[in-house]
Amino acid sequence: MQRLSEIALITQVVAFGSQQAFAQLVRTHQEAVRRFLCRLTGGDSMRADDLAQETFIRAWQGLDSFRQLSGFQTWLLRIAYRVFLDDARKEVRTGHTQELPQEGSSDWTAYQLSAPQNDDADNRLLRHDLDLALATLTETERACVLLQVVQGQSIRDIATITGLNENTVKSHLLRGKKNMAAYLRRNGYEG
């Protein structure tokens, strides 16, 4: 039913250029896209929001090329991943790379402030540790792990999003999850 209404909204956008219908689609999928980008950028919610905006604008411009072979969210996440990679490459070119703030540093306060107000300290620490653990992975491994563990995407969909083949995705997942879990265990998280 939800998929049907989503198709109806997409049709309205493609056929009539309806901004209202697109706003509805943004409202529905903003959470998944922003969460994915926020974790990909190491918890930098400002940068993640900028990239998410860029993602939705690219989606608006290219919605007529959406063939519904994959789900709309998978398609959006694919754009988001490309937007992230473009931005990461730009940062490497300009020599401006961001590192995660260490606990107690001045950046750490800003990092904490970017978290929602109703968030407790334990959760903030846990998220910081998860971001640090994610930072030990390569960009591709990080994307694969996040897409599976956080977004609940299937291996086939992860392959579609990242543009890799399924076996490569599986190896990235295996290696990424192993490294991440090892890092977390070393830091006192037991599973």
Binding site: Q19, F22, A23, V26, R27, Q30, E31, R34, R35, C38, D49, A52, Q53, F56, I57, P116, D119, N123, L126, R127, L130, V145, V149, V150, K177, M180, A181, L184, R185, Y189, E190, G191
Partner: peptide, 24 residues
Amino acid sequence: ELLSTLFAKAMQPVPDNGFTDSVM
């Protein structure tokens, strides 16, 4: 399982907070 548990614990709803409006 470890990762799923930790991510689930750390996961929070991401409120719109005017995001859709800024995109539009």
